[in-house]
């Protein structure tokens, strides 16, 4: 986020930043521009926390936006344009981590935990005897209930 950019700016040197996507950067061809935006949304601004280069106002994000637009105009496919960036900056720039053995735990644990939790809850409920239907209150209980209700008012 912006606070991270700002603080990082004090540590590493960054060119003072402008806003995110600027008018001058945008491609005239709306289809290409839409593709560029979609790619940019997938790439992390390296110096920010979880902000995409499309949304970041960091200078490097600006450069990468322009670069991606240049690549697309030059005829790159989306995958080629993304690879151009990951070749230089690694998988770290992908906001969506690739699904690979190292990330199986990451990707599958949410659903595994839900399944285990649901199974555990089911077993817990079932393990105990089924509930007998409510029996009508006997006279004593009814009196007690009435007394309590009265006390309440």
């Amino acid at each position: 986020m912006i606070r991270a950019v700002v603080v990082a700016a004090l540590l590493l040197g960054f060119v003072p930043a402008a806003l995110a996507v600027e008018p001058g950067e945008m491609l005239a061809n709306p289809q290409l521009e839409a593709r560029a935006e979609a790619i940019g949304k997938q790439l992390r601004c390296l110096v920010c926390q979880n902000e995409s280069i499309e949304d970041s106002n960091a200078d490097l994000a600006h450069d990468l936006r322009v670069l991606i637009r240049n690549r697309l105009t030059a005829g790159d496919t989306d995958a080629q344009a993304i690879k151009f960036v990951t070749d230089r900056y690694g998988d770290f720039v992908l906001l969506k981590p690739p699904v690979e053995p190292a990330t199986y735990v990451l990707w599958f644990s949410p659903f595994a935990i839900l399944t285990i939790g649901a199974l555990g809850a089911w077993l817990y409920i079932r393990h105990r005897r089924p509930v007998p239907p409510d029996e009508p209150l006997d006279l004593n209980q009814r009196r007690k209930l009435e007394r309590l209700l009265l006390e309440d008012q």
Partner: peptide, 11 residues
């Protein structure tokens, strides 16, 4: 800054 990007510089 293009050469820097080719090197993977981020600051």
């Amino acid at each position: 800054g293009r050469t820097a990007i080719n090197f993977g510089v981020y600051g």
